[in-house]
Amino acid sequence: MATKTKSPARSKGSSKTKSTKTAKHVYYFGDGKADGGGNMKPLLGGKGANLAEMTRIGLPVPPGFTITTEVCTYFSENKRSYPRGLEEAVEAALAKVEKSVGKKLGDKKRPLLVSVRSGARDSMPGMMDTILNLGMNDTVVEIVAKKTSNPRFAWDSYRRFLQMYGDVVMGVQKRAGEDHEPFEATIEHLKDERYGNHNFEDTKLTIEDFKELIARFKKLVKERAGRSFPADPWDQLKGAVGAVFGSWMNDRAIVYRRKYNIPAEWGTAVNVQAMVFGNTGDNSGSGVAFTRDPATGEKVFYGEFLINAQGEDVVAGVRTPEPVSELKKQLPKAFGELEIVRKKLESHFK
Rank of each mutant, 00 (worst) to 15 (best):
V244D: 11
N150T: 13
V26Y: 03
V90K: 12
A253G: 05
L113C: 11
K174I: 00
A176H: 15
E88H: 08
V288F: 12
V169L: 06
A253M: 07
T280W: 02
G317Q: 13
L331G: 11
I262R: 07
T130A: 02
G32M: 08
A309H: 02
G135A: 14
A243G: 13
D293G: 14
A89M: 03
G135M: 08
K219W: 09
P151M: 05
E98V: 05
V288P: 07
E142Q: 06
K146W: 05
Q310R: 08
M124V: 14
E201G: 01
I57V: 06
A289P: 00
S123K: 15
S284M: 05
K6Y: 13
W155S: 12
G135Q: 12
P182A: 09
G119H: 04
D235N: 15
N133M: 08
A93E: 00
W248K: 07
G102P: 01
L113H: 03
D167I: 03
S14G: 13
P60M: 01
R117Y: 14
K109A: 06
M164L: 07
A274H: 07
E88I: 03
K333M: 05
F305G: 06
D235M: 11
E326M: 12
G242V: 02
N50A: 10
G119E: 06
W155K: 03
E212V: 14
A95R: 08
L132H: 08
G287C: 08
Y74N: 03
K33Y: 13
P233C: 12
S123N: 15
T320L: 08
F200P: 09
M170N: 08
K33R: 04
D313Q: 09
G48F: 00
K99I: 01
R252I: 00
T280L: 13
V144P: 03
L86R: 03
S11R: 04
T3V: 15
S228G: 06
E193G: 06
R152D: 02
T206A: 00
N39R: 07
S228E: 08
V221Y: 06
Y302L: 09
E181D: 09
I340G: 12
R252W: 02
D179C: 09
K21N: 02
D35N: 06
L345P: 14
E346W: 14
K21P: 01
R121C: 10
E346G: 00
V341K: 10
S100H: 08
G38E: 03
K104M: 04
A95T: 14
S247V: 05
L59S: 04
K299D: 09
E91M: 15
D251E: 13
T280D: 00
L338H: 12
Y260S: 01
G239C: 10
V341Q: 13
A176P: 10
F75E: 01
A253N: 01
P125T: 02
Y260G: 07
P60T: 03
R117T: 10
F217Q: 05
T148N: 14
A264W: 12
K211W: 00
G246A: 12
